[in-house]
């Protein structure tokens, strides 16, 4: 009976987007478990289908974003995440999760550093979808809107790397208006396998159209792009389901 794919949310001290991320996953069909870092085991990871590192400030991010989470995760689990990926599991890192995945070396080499003006920035941004074939981005249009909320969201890499990632198709999302000065305007990346996926913007915060800043947003009658982001991954992991397209009218959800 329980054939819904399981998503596992890894919660560090200071992870704070787990509630809305769990809500988004649950709404789109996943079975969701949130496990505090101290209670995590390699076994638990290997039996889920999608591992999610949600946003927040792991251990406060006082040294730099994601550093302590990376070190403690390496210490506790070694390369369990690599094994999980190699056995076909998907790993999604949003915001702080993206920062941690980059630090872990699971995504192309680079770093997410403080914005050039030194400020935290909470605003809606337009993003270009570079990988409309990816299970997360499949149901989304060419340009998609999500909110960002970060102080260290500026992606930088060794000279030439960012452009090379674009050429190799590792860049999944770029800012239309490069709000934080990221190299090649990179907002999201995937690894070579496509199964590790990191992004600064928050798809879980755009689950229904009511989330949008503009009540007259023309994208979809009920849902937000975040719904389709998670739903298409659900369909990827559970091929028996009928695919949903954003043009279909769907019943209103309760938030």
């Amino acid at each position: 009976m329980e054939k819904r794919p399981e998503a596992l949310l890894l919660k560090f001290p200071g992870t704070n987007c787990d509630v809305e991320t769990a809500r988004a996953l649950d709404t789109t069909g996943f079975r969701v478990r949130t496990i505090p870092f101290k209670g995590i085991s390699e076994e638990a990871i290997l039996q889920c289908r999608l591992l999610v590192l949600p946003g927040g400030f792991s251990y406060g991010d006082y040294i730099m974003a994601g550093r302590l989470a990376q070190l403690k995760l390496e210490q506790a689990l070694g390369d369990a995440l690599n094994r999980f990926r190699d056995q076909g599991g998907y790993i999604l890192g949003i915001c702080n999760g993206f920062q941690i995945l980059v630090k872990l070396g699971l995504l192309p080499s680079g770093s997410l550093i403080a914005h050039a003006d030194g400020r935290f920035r909470c605003q809606w941004v337009k993003l270009r979808n570079h990988r409309p074939d990816h299970p997360f981005l499949r149901a989304l249009p060419e340009v998609v809107e999500f909110p960002i909320a970060c102080a260290e969201g500026r992606f930088v890499a060794a000279p030439g790397d960012a452009e090379a990632y674009l050429d190799k198709g590792l860049v999944t999302l770029t800012y239309e208006d490069n709000v934080n000065g990221s190299s090649a305007a990179i907002a999201g990346l995937q690894d070579e396998s496509g199964r590790v996926f990191g992004m600064m913007p928050h798809p879980e915060r755009f689950l229904t159209r009511a989330h949008h800043v503009d009540p007259d947003w023309a994208g979809d009658p009920d849902r937000g792009w975040g719904y389709y982001f998670f739903r298409s991954m659900y369909e990827e992991l559970n091929p028996a389901t009928e695919p949903e397209k954003s043009t279909e009218s769907s019943q209103a959800m309760t938030l």
Binding site: N16, C17, A24, F120, C122, Q123
Partner: peptide, 12 residues
């Protein structure tokens, strides 16, 4: 903009 006013995903 310095405040995250969207976290928890319930700010309408």
């Amino acid at each position: 903009r310095e405040y995250d006013h969207e976290v928890l995903g319930q700010t309408l």
